[in-house]
Amino acid sequence: MTNDTAPAIDVAHLTKRYDDVLAVDDISFTVRMGELFAFVGPNGAGKTTTVEIIDTIRRPTSGTVRLLGMDVTKRKHDILPRIGVLPQGFTSFDRITVAETIQYYSRLFSRRNTDVQGLIRLVNLEDKSEEQFQNLSGGLKQRLGIAVALVNDPEVVFLDEPTTGLDPRARREVWEVLLGLKKKGKTVFITTHYMEEAELLADTVAIIAKGRIIAMGSPEEIIQANAKYLVLTLKCADETALEIVRTMGFEPVQDDHRNITVNVAHSSDVRKILNALTDAEASFLTLDVRNPSLEAVFLELTRRSVTGQPS
C-alpha cells in the first residue's frame, strides 16, 4: 500500500541507555497515518521504554523521534493535545470516581464538551460510573485508562499493554474498541506480549528483543519471511498415523487428544504424508495445513536472538 502522506511516527536511530543498561539499541521504524502498529516482545525487551519516548514521557539518549511531524523532545507542548496515552499499569486518584476521572482529564485538555457518558459506554463501565478508582478491579482500571486516553479525541493513541490483566471477554471488547478507533482513521500504537492480539489487530508488527527490532512488517510478511515451513495438523483415531509419519523421517508431535502436528518444509511433503497415510489405509478425522502462527515465529526469532543465531 503506497501512502504519500507523512508518517504519523518516524523513529530514527533511537537509543536509550540507563547507566550500564542499553534498553533501546539503535532502532528505526515508521508508523503510517491511520494504521494500527503493534510493538511486540518479551518482558524487558524495550517496548515500554520505546513507547514512553515516543509519547514524550521519557527522553531519548540519542536518535530522533518525530510524532505528527514534530520532534518529541522540542514540541511536546504542541504534541500533547493531539495524542492520547494509556501508560502501562494505568492508575489515578484513589478517591475520585470513574466519571469524575474522565471529567478531570478532559479539563486538563481544556475540553468542555467531552461526552463523558459516551466514553463510559465505550469501555462498558456504565454500572461503575460512580465507583471510586480504588474500588475498581485491575481490569476495570485498565478500561478506565483507555477511556481517559480518548478524552481529547486524539489523532494518535498509544496503549501500553492495553489488555494485560483483562479476562478474555474484556480483552475482546478492547479489541473492538481498538479496531473502532482505526476505522475512525486514528493511528493506534500498541505494545503487547500477546502474539494473538498483534496478529489479529495490527497492520504492522515490530518484534523487539533485547532492545533491537528483529523483525518488522505485516503479520503475514513476518511469518512468510521467517517461517519457511508449513504446519500440518491431523486429528487421528489411533497411533497408526503417528508411526507412519515418524518412519517417513518427520518429527511429529502428539498432544493429549491424539492430534499430530508436524512441521514440513514444502507443500509437496504434505502430499507425501497424505499419500502414505492413504496407502496404509490409516484413518484420520481432520486435516489442517496452515502457516505457522506469529507466536511460533516470535518464539523462534527470540530464541535465535538470545542464542545469538542469525535471524
Partner: peptide, 13 residues
C-alpha cells in the same frame, strides 16, 4: 510512585 504523575505528564498540564 503510583504512576499518576507519569499519566499526567502526557497531558497539557
Amino acid at each position: 510512585q503510583k504512576g499518576v504523575i507519569r499519566k499526567l505528564s502526557t497531558t497539557p498540564i
